[in-house]
């Protein structure tokens, strides 16, 4: 057998590597996201933000629930937990508290985080639990075929609102602010640089940090709402959004006939759950070492 001759004209067999390749589980690709979907954009903005961060890779965990966005956990090549529908936050809470050295973040959709998981969201924000939440709001339950969600604007069409959505959607930044989040931002997948920067800030900041990402779902949302193509939806996001970091409260409402307001809205300092827990443990250490722990009358 002769060695194959190496010519300069031969195209290398190996695909060139992408800087993010090592962050992906190559053996799980291709991903499930449809053409025109915005989740991939938000996902790569997230990876870019993580790469910039100081956290060693083995100390970062992603936790997700169920839905199109939550599939991200299965593609990221780090410790990754794809839990049950709506339950990513309490799972992440346990993970973080049992090992506070971990940086734990979530990547999930509007239906998962705010419908079935809504209670967990407000309580984790109230505690200022040290978690970063990236919520893909595509206005719809994508994986089950396009039912309206708590992110669907009033009047929008979906498979379970065939005459227009009668439900009021959540104003997610307002909810996060009221519940106690330390950092709250909203961007769209058409604002990649701002989005990456916001995720980066959220990732580095202590406490409960929240980034809402408005993202196109042409397949099951756009198609029913006169925007069947991703590129069209992206243009609409650019044309009908307004950046205003100083906007407040009800200005963040999402209405079909009004521009969507974007920005880094809230950035405040609150003692976090892990910080309080550390202080408490130090206090208890002193308290308990002065007190004899004995049987029978313990606690009297």
């Amino acid at each position: 057998m002769t060695e194959p001759s190496v010519s300069e004209n031969v195209v290398p067999q190996k695909q060139p590597t992408h800087p993010m390749d090592s962050w992906l589980r190559q053996d799980r690709l291709p991903h499930i996201w449809c053409p025109g979907c915005g989740i991939g954009i938000a996902f790569s903005a997230t990876i870019a933000a993580i790469k910039e961060s100081d956290f060693p890779r083995e100390k970062i965990s992603i936790v997700s629930g169920i839905g199109c966005s939550s599939r991200a956990a299965g593609y990221l090549n780090i410790d990754s937990f794809h839990t049950t529908h709506g339950r990513a936050i309490p799972f992440a809470t346990g993970l973080k508290l049992a090992n506070p050295d971990l940086k734990v973040f979530l990547f999930a959709g509007d239906g998962d985080l705010f419908s079935i998981g809504g209670n967990h969201f407000i309580h984790a924000a109230r505690r200022n639990m040290d978690l970063t939440i990236i919520c893909i709001n595509n206005y719809i339950y994508g994986m089950t075929g396009g039912q309206f969600s708590p992110g669907t604007p009033m009047g929008a069409m979906s498979s379970t609102s065939p005459y227009g959505n009668q439900d009021t959607p959540f104003n997610l930044p307002h909810l996060a602010e009221a519940a106690g989040a330390a950092f709250v931002a909203r961007w769209t997948t058409a604002h990649v640089r701002q989005l990456k920067k916001a995720i980066s800030t959220a990732f580095q900041k202590r406490g409960f940090t929240f980034v809402e990402v408005i993202s196109p779902c042409p397949t099951v949302y756009g198609r029913r709402n006169k925007q069947p193509f991703g590129i069209q939806m992206m243009k609409t996001l650019l044309e009908t959004s307004q950046i205003n970091h100083n906007a407040r409260g009800h200005e963040w409402d999402i209405l079909l006939d009004k521009p969507v307001v974007l920005g880094n809205f809230i950035d405040r300092e609150r003692e976090t759950f892990v910080e309080r827990q550390k202080a408490f443990q130090e206090h208890m250490e002193t308290y308990l070492s002065e007190k004899e722990i004995k049987g029978g009358t313990y606690g009297d």
Partner: peptide
Amino acid sequence: NAILGAAWAGA
């Protein structure tokens, strides 16, 4: 869910 998460952190 929290106890499952904690178990995966080693507790």
